[in-house]
Structure formats: structure tokens, C-alpha cells
Simulated scan of single mutants.
Amino acid sequence: MSRLQVILASTRPGRVGLPVFNWFVERAERHSAFEAVDGVDLAELGLPFMDEPNHPRLRRYEHQHTKDWSARVEAADAFVFVTPEYNHSYSAPLKNAIDFLHNEWAYKPVGFASYGGIAAGTRALQALKPVVAALRMTPVVEAVNIPFVGQFIDEDEQFRPNDVLDQAAEAMLSELSRVESALRPLRTPASATTSA
């Protein structure tokens, strides 16, 4: 059993991403592959703009907010980024949250739930893929892409997916679980594998 972290990339007041995020966290909690789901709203996390003096690969963090973020990401085995598309890319708060850390992301799979207009946020995914690859993360092919996201949000600000989106979420969660299992040995310290 693995632990999934779902990260909401938008921090904008009035964001439509919050209902999408809430739906996806609930959907992931119902998936049998994950023993725990940690939902991270970057607006609530409130990381400042990168303020660590040392390179994150050294893990010599000086600020408590970074140490707390490090521990939270380290505890996760897989990730889903719930992201809008801003100007053919993804949000600055997500880039900042990613860049605060380095080794904590390595050898873990990541999926994407994107939303937007006609392009369904897919250009944000294309911008994210080289960034996560540089951190040794593995993006899965399966994704949840939500076009014209407003049509799926009701008057109570609840996200109401259709069957296609629900099936896409199921496929992505299942693939994240498969890839996480395959990558797990790479996250095991060498001393643990040689001392057996």
C-alpha cells in the first residue's frame, strides 16, 4: 500500500480548481491502492517565495516551513498535481513548491489532473513534464483533462464529473499505483538492499 499526495496548484481567489481538487482527493481515497491520501492546497500551505540559502539537493534547510514541506513530500510515494493552465504553462506557486525541494521527489510517479477551456489545461502538463523529469519523477501517461471546467461545477460549487472523467481518474490512479510499485526499489537505500 502506498501514500498519495494530491497538490492543488492554484492559489487564486475564486479559483475553480478547489472543487476539482476536492473531488479528486475524495476519488483517490476510494481507490483501493492507496492507504492514505494527503491533500495539499498550496494556498493553505502558504510557502513564501523561495527563501532557502542552500541548494535544495543538500537538504540543509534553515526554515521550519521548508522542513515541514520536506517531511510531507518525503512521506508520499506518488503525486497528482491538480493544475490550471496560465498562459500555456502552469502556476508560479506550483513551480515554487517544487523548487523548494529536490531529493524528496525522486523516483516517484506523478499524474496530472488539468483543467481549463478548450485545451483542458494540457499545455500546463507539457510544461511540467521536463521539470518533473529533471527531479527523477516519472510522469504517467494516463491523465484527467477537464475541458470547459465550469460546466462540471454546480450551483453549490461541487465538481460533478461525467463518466469519461471518472474513468480517466480510475485509470490514472491505477497506473500511479503500478508505477509506484516498480519505482519503489529505487527509493530503497543501497544499504538496505545489500545488508539482507
Rank of each mutant, 00 (worst) to 15 (best):
M1D: 15
P161F: 05
L186M: 15
V140D: 08
A124Y: 00
A192N: 14
S32R: 01
L8R: 12
N54A: 12
P19G: 01
A33W: 11
V140A: 10
V140Y: 09
R160A: 04
M172V: 02
V73W: 02
A168V: 01
L173Q: 04
S70G: 12
N54S: 12
D166Y: 03
K67V: 05
T138K: 13
V140F: 07
E170V: 06
A43F: 05
V16E: 04
F79V: 11
A171S: 15
I7W: 04
P161Y: 02
V6A: 02
G111M: 04
P53D: 08
A106D: 12
P130T: 05
H65E: 08
V16I: 12
D99R: 06
G111F: 02
D51N: 11
R184D: 10
R3Q: 08
N162M: 01
E155K: 08
E74V: 13
A127R: 01
Q158G: 03
T194R: 14
D156G: 02
P185C: 14
E44C: 09
A127S: 09
S181W: 11
R123G: 05
R12T: 06
E74A: 13
S2G: 06
A33L: 07
R30H: 06
V25A: 05
N54E: 15
E26D: 14
I7K: 00
V164I: 03
R123E: 05
A97F: 11
L4F: 04
V73G: 04
G117N: 07
S174Q: 07
P13T: 02
A71L: 08
A182V: 14
P13L: 00
M1N: 11
L186Y: 15
W69S: 03
I98K: 05
A113T: 02
A133F: 10
N103V: 12
L101C: 10
G150W: 03
E170W: 03
P19S: 03
L94R: 09
V141C: 08
S177C: 07
P19D: 01
L8D: 00
A36S: 12
E180C: 15
P109T: 10
L58P: 10
G121V: 03
R178W: 14
E85C: 03
S32H: 07
A133G: 10
A171H: 10
A169F: 01
F21P: 02
Y115W: 03
